Amino acid sequence: MSSPTEAGDDAEIITASLYDPERFAAVFDRHAPHIQRYLARRLGGQIADDLVAETFLIAFGKRGRYNPSYPNARPWLYGIATHLVGQHRREEVREYRLRAALGPPVDQACHAEQVAAQVTAQAMNELLAAALASLAQGDRDVLVLIAWEDLSYEEVAAALGIPVGTVRSRLSRARKKVRVKLGHSEYALIEEVSNHG
């Protein structure tokens, strides 16, 4: 029996797990923290915990259909996770709107500079949450996979099962909408983060 931290690329491990299912644990060990972070950013921590488990359960069940020409399984896992986010779309939009309405909690005992920083952060969070909530699901998926998860256009295309050209057009559309919501100066940070691929 192999260790969950075994060497080899993901494709080799997934293929081997067809005959030795315990080997799939190495894929979980390698990628669960990334998928957890992605899902927590999209839906919040409580739902993320459930969906991480569901993501890997689905991946385990579909491992026989994994394309071994892809040595890194992370885009495939992001695709499964993104599909699960899509199933929770209403909750996701509601969560963004709730975050925009509530903002970060204000500490009564903080200094004036901390209060000013929190007010500025709250205003930016409200704008960003509203901007994300206003995007179509496909555009939002592309934007967050590139900006938050640092995936390339090709990896996003593989994760979502869409052509690279569609990734580019969705990202362009999302950037325009976010630019309008945030204003040009605040948008520069998002543009810098997501302008790669």
Rank of each mutant, 00 (worst) to 15 (best):
E22L: 13
W76M: 02
Q46H: 06
R140G: 00
R140F: 01
L77C: 07
E54Q: 13
V119W: 02
D9F: 01
E6D: 12
E12V: 06
F24C: 08
G197V: 02
V106Q: 07
Q108P: 09
A100S: 13
A16W: 11
D141W: 03
A121D: 07
A11Q: 03
L182K: 13
H184Q: 12
Q46D: 12
L128R: 14
R94N: 01
V106T: 13
R173K: 10
L128D: 04
E192T: 11
E92F: 00
G79Y: 00
S169D: 03
N125F: 03
S194F: 05
L51E: 11
S3F: 12
P163S: 11
D50R: 11
Q137M: 08
Q122N: 15
G197I: 01
V93W: 01
G197K: 05
A117H: 01
R90Y: 03
V85K: 00
I47G: 04
V93F: 00
R65S: 11
E22T: 12
A11H: 03
K176Q: 15
Y187A: 15
A32I: 06
G61W: 10
R37A: 07
D29M: 15
A121W: 04
N125W: 03
S3P: 07
T55R: 09
G79I: 01
P71N: 05
D50T: 10
G86T: 05
P21I: 12
A133E: 13
L18M: 14
E12A: 15
A81P: 07
A136H: 13
E192G: 06
H184F: 08
A158C: 04
S69L: 13
D20K: 15
R90Q: 14
W148V: 06
N195A: 14
H34R: 12
A129I: 05
A147P: 00
Q137R: 09
S17P: 08
G103Q: 03
K176F: 11
A48K: 00
R89K: 14
E186I: 04
D139P: 09
L98V: 02
V167W: 06
G8E: 09
D10Q: 09
A73W: 02
G138M: 05
I14M: 05
R41H: 01
H31L: 11
T166Y: 08
I13L: 15
Y78L: 06
D50C: 03
V93K: 06
R30N: 09
A25W: 09
V52W: 12
A188L: 15
T120D: 07
C110F: 01
R97N: 13
H196I: 00
Y78N: 08
Q87N: 14
Q114T: 04
A48P: 02
G61N: 14
I80G: 04
D107C: 02
Y153S: 04
V106C: 02
V164M: 09
A101W: 00
A147R: 13
E192H: 12
R170L: 10
S17A: 12
V52A: 09
L102S: 07
V85H: 00
R97L: 15
I146S: 07
L143F: 14
N195T: 12
A117Y: 01
D50A: 08
A48N: 03
S169C: 03
L18C: 14
V115I: 02
Q36M: 10
R30V: 10
V178E: 11
D10C: 08
A48M: 02
A136R: 15
A59V: 10
E186K: 14
Y19A: 14
R23W: 09
E192P: 00
M124A: 14
V193A: 10
E92W: 00
